[in-house]
Design a protein around this nucleic acid. Structure first.
Lengths: 340, 340
DNA sequence: GGTGACTTGATGTCCTTTTTTCATGCGTAC
DNA sequence: GTACGCATGAAAAAAGGACATCAAGTCACC
């Protein structure tokens, strides 16, 4: 299959018997040109449906006006929202977006970076994969002076701007909410421990317990790799605890939903026997039965802020010094934690 | 913020005191080159961290190895799945993907096409917006010989390849299922009537009724614009029918969920009073209470097939003649329709 | 010394944009 | 009236990176 021919300046020039540079000047409305010549050229360009070749342009000015985005998976509602925000605000400022997913694999993440860099994107926006536990590829980007920002799944030691949620704060909010609802033995179900958000949310969980004068209990901290199978393993493990805990805080909504679904199948009542809470406020969480208490993380907003800051840096509107943008989360109390 | 400098062939050539063409040949392992020279160049390239400039390459061969994808919205799980499939299989064949969302707006759709074409993508994959009711922009693409395929939300009169689900068949399956479950007065809630899928699913609905010897009743066909407000308006309208219908088939899951949520709030029992079914098999549908009967549409598969066919055409592996790929759907019966 | 094989170099192309150079025409001054 | 200079408009050239094609260089061997 062939692509249709694109009209070039050369052809316009040839048709009108002028030089290519004259055409170029006419199209950018240069003042040092006969009005008449200009008019004729602009008209011909329109008629021939001329579209400047962005490729040639980019090669010349060595800027593609394209951003590369890497997310763990597009099908996650949260990341899809981020992408949506990035898209909208990048487009507003004349940038295109190339999106890749790492599928939670560090190798794929590295491959994506390579591809995007080879495609000469002006900058990158990265949310790290679950697997990412070393960071050479990011330091290399940094050393090669390719601008990038990290969002949501970040690595703290890399000297670039980062956009995160106040994960510790959100976890504190939700744990506190469980405590206030009367829970006293609260399990925290964590994702992979390397993950930034796993750590931060644990911090918030522990802080809330401490403030309530409840001792940290290592047996009340469970770790899943976030696959459905492993989530169910944890759900079983908790169901087998004796006595049952009275509250469970799952690091992320889909995990909570898996746990809830399993418990329903074995007759554990939520919130009567165990209060349950998640994190992220996925659409699913609002419609499960009982509706899931969670913490709202506006992904669209995160994408918007991250891309805006990055473009501000690219365009020299703000300093290049890395900053950290922390977005607030909001507790969304629902029936799954309603014990009073 | 500046971008770090990229190593070019020129620099390698200069450093080693050879010509650029020699470097070029060495890097593509041309046989007409001294092994020793080749080795030296390849080594230097590696050491200097040389990355070919895809932009220049693209300009030269006038192929970018990039596909443009336009979907109504990324945050929809179905379209996210399609994108995921497209991504994976495009990457496998060495293509990148630029994704745009039309936000269900025809103007945005046209703007997206323009941007992607200006970016010299090799081909486009488009799923039409809800608003799209004229097709000049598509015919223009066709006339300019820019390859593209349509998927899911297609327009039948455009002579390009299309990938769709057997929407009529799926709707037939689900309507038939409702009939077999004992329903005799079944409402069909449609999306905007211009929409390909609205029409096709209505076809299937009517066919099933007809086969069961049930007369078509115009009052049993409702139309929503798919906004939450309008969905709830329909839910109210149905709740006010006297007698209540005994089954409702909503054209798409989120619509069914909105309806279900409203009914729950006013005490209408599903499936006891009204059996309910949706279409698409969103993750949400499995976890609502009661779980929603629906029709499964594998989006990942659709993306995969669409992109594979398109690349086959681009690469000349199959004929350019437009074909129509129709994917089968699967009925997913759940509690929301369980009346027997 | 000449021929052929084997390597390497130079140049042109893709397309746009910018810079430099050139040409024309008009005006002024001698 | 001629010559010079300046202003203006337009053409030519160069840059940006990769690569194909054609040209030329070197070496060895007969």
């Amino acid at each position: 299959m062939k692509k249709g021919h694109q009209v070039t300046m050369k052809e316009i020039a040839k048709k009108l018997g002028v030089s290519v540079s004259t055409v170029s000047r006419a199209l950018k409305d240069s003042p040092e040109l006969h009005e008449e010549t200009k008019r004729k050229i602009v008209e011909a360009a329109k008629e021939m449906n001329y579209q400047p070749n962005l490729l040639a342009q980019s090669l010349r000015i060595s800027r593609t006006k394209t951003l590369g985005v890497i997310v763990p998976e597009i099908t996650s509602h949260f990341f899809a929202s981020c992408i949506s925000g990035i898209q909208d605000f990048a487009n507003k400022r004349g940038y295109n977006v190339m999106i890749c997913q790492s599928n939670e694999s560090i190798d794929q993440e590295i491959a994506n970076i390579k591809t995007l860099v080879a495609s000469q994107v002006d900058a990158l926006m990265i949310s790290l994969s679950r697997e990412t536990n070393h960071y050479e590829h990011l330091f290399e980007l940094y050393n090669r002076e390719i601008p990038f920002v990290l969002f949501d799944r970040v690595q703290e030691d890399i000297p670039v701007s980062k956009v995160t949620f106040n994960d510790a704060g959100g976890a504190y909010q939700v744990t506190n909410h469980l405590l206030e609802s009367g829970c006293r033995s609260i399990v925290y179900v964590s994702g992979p421990e390397d993950l930034y958000i796993s750590k931060k949310r644990k911090e918030g969980y522990l802080k809330a317990l401490k403030e309530y004068g409840i001792e940290e209990n290592p047996e009340f901290i469970k770790v899943t790799d976030l696959t459905e199978a492993d989530n169910i393993r944890i759900a079983k493990e908790i169901a087998a605890m004796d006595p049952l805990p009275d509250g469970v805080f799952c690091m992320i909504d889909p995990l909570a939903v898996d746990v809830l679904t399993y418990w329903k199948s074995v007759g554990i009542k939520v919130p009567e026997q165990i209060a349950l809470a998640g994190f992220t406020n996925n659409p699913t969480s609002a419609v499960v039965e009982p509706p899931l208490t969670t913490v709202s993380q506006p992904g669209y907003e995160m994408g918007k802020l991250a891309v805006s800051h990055l473009l501000d840096q690219l365009d020299g509107l703000v300093s290049d010094d890395p900053i950290s943008i922390v977005l607030d989360t909001t507790l969304v109390p629902r029936k799954s934690s309603q014990r009073i």
